[in-house]
Design a binder for these strands. Structure first.
Lengths: 199, 199
DNA sequence: GTCTATATAGCGATAGAC
DNA sequence: GTCTATCGCTATATAGAC
């Protein structure tokens, strides 16, 4: 680890913050440097190009994913509950890295797309042993993706924070949703033979 | 409707295509005009500004949402199955409009964010009567969002089309997922829920 | 390691011919 | 209704002083 230069982290924080608060188009080198309290030249000393800045954000996502996988494995509530519960935007370091990287990916950054894909596969692999079958795994993963998708839209400049409240379940609503998912994905099915014929 | 000028539609198609294929940053007026086979001046006759171009895309999304709500209401498989099934990217007009608008929203376009939010609320209102409770509605909506999120990432330049295949269920896997969701959301619960009093 | 100044190119938008 | 030409601005990136 050998803690990286502080200015470098501050630049990365600023990049992340602008991506989240104002969207991908606003995240210019000028804007990032200003927010980080350095000059553009100072920024470019730490990150040689904008692509390098994106790579730095993806590195941060990888590191935070490592830590989250450990926390998830140790979680007393179980990996499924932990994963869904922590998929609502709580503005912690991991949430911010995910939303910021998503913004980059949607702008067209290949490295951001690959980084998101990599983290997602690691979470899926860790969760798989704790759910009934592949359909159940799909359900859990997609639900989490949906939560991030909505939270990320809710944080856009066009959306009032109050309006977002009823888009995504929080508190008791989230608890009921998790309960629903747990019943659906972790237990053996009550009716062992679905025998559905429609597609 | 009084069919709009063809060139206008071609420009909108090109805008959509570039957003989907190359991401938000690549969707410049020059690139859109080139792909549509018109000059930049020609483009700007139909859409006075880039914001106006975004507004045109959102209008298209609204219109396609109208049509989809009708199809969903008439669907013999039922609204829930219809909604989930059609949430995988099939490259039809509605899918393309949604993914393209999502790219714009993540770039920071307030009008795109508002448009997505509006369509999502209309779908939610149409589905609500067909599921058990609000938690079930959340599940269905978030699952659909998750499918779009993944499909939109899979279409990014950084992701090979083959790799995307195992990210999102298709065919039989999708059928099993829908079956799982239907059992979870549409039937009366085996254990009758204690009437909860919040929300 | 951080700054200012500057080069270069690309972007959105306008003007005006046809 | 579509074109070419061009303006003014902003973006990324470089050079070189401190």
């Amino acid at each position: 680890m050998a803690r990286p230069p502080l200015a470098r982290e501050r630049v990365l924080d600023a990049f992340e913050a602008i991506l989240i608060d104002e969207g991908g188009r606003a995240a210019t080198l000028d804007a990032v440097a200003r927010r980080a309290g350095v000059s553009k030249g100072g920024l470019l000393y730490h990150f040689a190009s904008k692509d390098d800045l994106a790579a730095g954000l993806v590195d941060r996502l990888d590191t935070l994913t490592d830590a989250d996988l450990e926390r998830m494995a140790d979680s007393p509530e179980g990996p499924v509950t932990y994963y869904i519960r922590t998929s609502v935007m709580e503005d912690d370091a991991l949430d911010r890295a995910i939303v910021a990287t998503t913004r980059l990916a949607q702008g067209g950054s290949a490295i951001a797309t690959a980084g998101l894909d990599r983290s997602r596969r690691r979470w899926a692999a860790a969760i798989r042993p704790h759910v009934r079958d592949d359909a159940a795994l799909d359900l859990v993963m997609l639900l989490s993706d949906g939560l991030y998708f909505n939270n990320s839209l809710a944080f856009e400049p066009g959306a009032a924070a109050e309006d977002a409240a009823d888009l995504v379940p929080t508190g008791a609503g989230l608890a009921r949703l998790i309960d629903l998912v747990l019943r659906t994905t972790t237990r053996a099915p009550e009716d062992p033979e679905p025998a559905s014929d429609e597609v």
